[in-house]
Amino acid sequence: MLEGKELILATKPYAREHRTLSWLYALSTLFLLIATLTGTLMLPYLVLKVMASILSGLLIVRMFVIYHDHQHHTILHNSSLANAIMILFGIYVLAPSSIWKRSHDYHHKHNSKLFSASIGSYPILTRNRFESATPSERRRYLFSRHPLTIIAGYLSMFMIGMCIQSFLSSPRKHADALFALLIHIGGSVAVCYFWGWQSWLLFIVIPFTIACGLGAYLFYAQHNFPDVVFSVNKDWCYDKAALLSSSYLVMSPVMQWFTANIGYHHIHHLNARIPFYRLPEVMQAFPELQQARTTSLSFRDMRACFRLKVWDPEQNRMISLKEIRVIRTALLRRKSDPAIIAG
Score class of each variant (00 low, 15 high):
residue 310 V to N: 01
residue 274 I to L: 03
residue 165 Q to P: 02
residue 160 I to F: 11
residue 215 G to E: 01
residue 105 D to V: 09
residue 150 I to L: 01
residue 155 L to A: 14
residue 67 Y to S: 01
residue 181 L to V: 07
residue 172 R to V: 09
residue 116 S to Q: 15
residue 153 G to Q: 00
residue 330 A to T: 13
residue 155 L to S: 10
residue 263 G to I: 01
residue 317 R to T: 10
residue 69 D to I: 01
residue 165 Q to A: 10
residue 283 M to D: 13
residue 249 L to E: 03
residue 142 L to M: 13
residue 133 A to G: 12
residue 220 Y to K: 00
residue 314 E to G: 08
residue 328 R to H: 15
residue 183 I to H: 04
residue 41 L to M: 13
residue 283 M to P: 01
residue 187 G to E: 04
residue 31 F to Q: 12
residue 164 I to C: 03
residue 63 M to W: 03
residue 46 L to Q: 13
residue 204 I to G: 01
residue 216 A to F: 00
residue 336 S to M: 13
residue 294 T to K: 06
residue 171 P to A: 07
residue 191 V to L: 05
residue 249 L to V: 12
residue 123 P to C: 10
residue 185 I to K: 05
residue 151 I to N: 00
residue 333 R to P: 03
residue 107 H to K: 04
residue 90 G to L: 02
residue 209 T to R: 02
residue 139 R to K: 14
residue 306 F to P: 00
residue 124 I to V: 15
residue 198 Q to C: 11
residue 92 Y to F: 15
residue 120 G to F: 02
residue 112 S to W: 00
residue 152 A to V: 05
residue 169 S to H: 11
residue 334 R to G: 07
residue 182 L to H: 06
residue 231 S to T: 13
residue 194 F to H: 10
residue 58 L to S: 01
residue 114 L to T: 11
residue 48 L to F: 08
residue 24 L to G: 08
residue 337 D to C: 10
residue 201 L to S: 05
residue 47 V to C: 06
residue 13 P to Y: 07
residue 19 R to A: 09
residue 221 A to C: 11
residue 277 Y to L: 08
residue 301 D to M: 01
residue 300 R to M: 11
residue 60 I to F: 05
residue 100 W to I: 05
residue 271 N to G: 03
residue 25 Y to Q: 09
residue 342 A to P: 01
residue 110 H to F: 06
residue 306 F to C: 02
residue 8 I to L: 15
residue 7 L to T: 08
residue 249 L to Y: 01
residue 150 I to A: 00
residue 141 Y to M: 06
residue 336 S to Q: 14
residue 22 S to W: 04
residue 334 R to M: 12
residue 55 L to M: 13
residue 63 M to S: 05
residue 250 V to H: 00
residue 334 R to D: 12
residue 54 I to S: 04
residue 37 L to V: 11
residue 76 L to P: 03
residue 219 F to Q: 00
residue 96 P to V: 05
residue 44 P to G: 12
residue 232 V to E: 15
residue 170 S to R: 06
residue 312 D to N: 13
residue 78 N to T: 07
residue 96 P to L: 03
residue 325 R to G: 04
residue 288 E to H: 04
residue 144 S to E: 11
residue 80 S to D: 12
residue 288 E to N: 05
residue 224 N to F: 06
residue 142 L to V: 14
residue 21 L to K: 14
residue 114 L to F: 12
residue 122 Y to R: 02
residue 314 E to C: 07
residue 114 L to H: 11
residue 304 A to P: 03
residue 228 V to A: 09
residue 42 M to E: 13
residue 290 Q to P: 11
residue 298 S to G: 14
residue 113 K to N: 09
residue 35 A to F: 14
residue 89 F to S: 03
residue 63 M to V: 06
residue 132 S to D: 11
residue 80 S to N: 10
residue 164 I to A: 04
residue 264 Y to L: 00
residue 288 E to T: 09
residue 162 M to H: 08
residue 207 P to F: 05
residue 105 D to H: 10
residue 179 F to R: 04
residue 185 I to D: 09
residue 109 K to S: 13
residue 195 W to M: 12
